[in-house]
Design a protein around this nucleic acid. Sequence first.
DNA 1: CGTGTTTGACCTGCGC
DNA 2: GCGCAGGTCAAACACG
Length: 156
Amino acid sequence: MDDTGFRSFESSRSDNYGSFEFSELLEFDEWAEADPGVMVSGYPVDPVYAAANDGRSIVGGSSNVEASNASNIGSRAARKEKVAFRTMTEIEILDDGFKWRKYGKKMVKNSPMPRNYYRCSIEGCAVKKRVERDREDPRYVITTYEGQHNHQANML
DNA sequence: CGTGTTTGACCTGCGC
DNA sequence: GCGCAGGTCAAACACG
């Protein structure tokens, strides 16, 4: 497992996550902005959502999709990944092993609750995270990850 | 003293 | 071309 994250998550959690469980993967969009033809046909495997899972892997393994399409462009960051999923939890600050810095809050019309925008604190890491409450189920939190980390998640 | 959070303002894209 | 919604930035503040 030499992924970009997905480790060091076994002993940092508290009991706050008692009611923490993944409900379902809402949606995911991946697109190659350079060459749509090389787009991976699988699913976006961002180690992030597995890390936030406290041991229960929701997506299983397979995290080498980037090696498949990075062969013709020659540069990384050739594609963005957006992963959104709903989580049943009281807290909205899901600690996935990365350090997040909130950079904005916006009131969305679709939801009575404002949406929060987070960004990875590590320099060079352009991963963004968007946290918002489910409109129909306030006890659910919709977390959207965008991008991939280029460092270890071991920075707590 | 350093880091992270807060909040309003500003910018951009899209729809009409 | 204008308006709306969403997304981002930046200054000030609070906290460790």
